[in-house]
Amino acid sequence: MNLFRLLGDLSHLASILVLLHKIQTSRSCRGISFKTQALYVAVFVARYLDLFWRYISLYNSAMKVFFIGSSCYILYLMKYRYRPTNDPSIDTFRIEYLLVPCAILSLIFNYNFMPTEILWSFSIFLESVAILPQLFMLQRTGEAEAITTHYLAALGIYRALYIPNWIYRYFTEGVIDPIAVTAGIVQTGLYLDFFYVYFTKVLQGQKFELPA
């Protein structure tokens, strides 16, 4: 564990707490892509079910339980409790364009051709693009509530912090994980446009609005 990874994980944790706070206080999931949230459930289940056969640390296990539990709870809130506030007509990204290529990539790029490793690769590839339905929705509506942008920023910062973590681990432990690093760089890259608007507008007190 190093500081970059710890801060990254805490940022990930914070992003989910911000999202839950937004949904609970506004009693609405307006502006949140159900498809992205469903993809995160798939990511967490595919990767973290190793809870049952791989023990790393109490920290690691507790985080895995939290991520699986909270992501399922968010889906429940969107699908049942606050269903009327969820508008599928603007959540139109075709997720099969993400699922199928990720499935194929995970069959080609994995560390061992066995179900658990293929699932692990699949979850890494899928996580890297899972935010696309959400960003696509933002692009369509052209604006977002401030709290939704804080959620996205925390999620993007989490990914960005994993990059110095890998650099640090490479130099201190000689560890390199090419699949996670490649997917992680792609994933962070997807946030660049968003970060630009977030840092130049939202943090200056302006509304999050994309140029037409």
Partner: peptide
């Protein structure tokens, strides 16, 4: 070393 990384990251 081991060709399969530990997967100790979240």
């Amino acid at each position: 070393g081991n060709p399969v990384p530990q997967h100790d990251e979240l």
